Amino acid sequence: MTLSLIAACIWIVLAAVLAMLPSNDDLWRRAYFLIAIGVPLVGWVTYENGPWIGMAVLAAGMSFLRWPMLYLGRWVKRQIVRG
């Protein structure tokens, strides 16, 4: 297992632990932190292990961050309908 995959596994465990802790802002600050760490991590995994493994890690990250992805999809849809 490469170092990038070990880092991705640690990210997943960190995301699960952060999701279990109580929060006043509905976990948004933690989501921004996880996104900031996760995006370069997905690039690193893709670079070292190839696009299929990179897409699997991306899907795992998106499953943890499903609400930010849902809001992003809604925002993109609004931009397309306006334009």
Results as ranks from 00 to 15, higher is better:
V39K: 04
K77T: 01
L65Y: 09
S23I: 00
L14K: 07
A36L: 13
N49Y: 06
G61I: 07
G54W: 07
F64E: 04
N24W: 12
L34Y: 07
L27Q: 15
W44N: 04
L70K: 10
G38P: 05
A60T: 12
I6W: 10
G73I: 01
V39H: 07
L18W: 12
M20V: 01
F33S: 03
V13R: 06
L70C: 08
G61K: 06
W75R: 12
G61L: 04
Y47I: 00
L21P: 02
G50S: 04
G54E: 04
A31P: 01
W44Y: 13
A59W: 10
A8V: 05
I6Y: 09
M20W: 10
L5C: 05
A19L: 06
A8Q: 07
M55L: 13
M62S: 13
W44I: 01
L58N: 07
N49A: 14
L14W: 11
I35R: 02
L5Q: 14
C9A: 15
G38R: 11
W28D: 02
R66N: 00
G73Q: 02
R29C: 01
W44Q: 08
R29G: 15
R30L: 04
R66E: 02
V42T: 15
L58G: 05
Q79G: 12
A16H: 10
G83E: 07
G43I: 03
G54A: 02
I80R: 11
V57Y: 11
A16T: 02
N24G: 14
V17H: 05
G43K: 05
P22V: 00
N24S: 06
M20E: 05
A7H: 09
M55N: 12
L72V: 04
R82G: 03
V45T: 11
W44S: 06
Q79Y: 04
L70A: 14
A7Q: 13
L41V: 09
T46Y: 03
R78G: 06
L70Y: 13
D26Y: 09
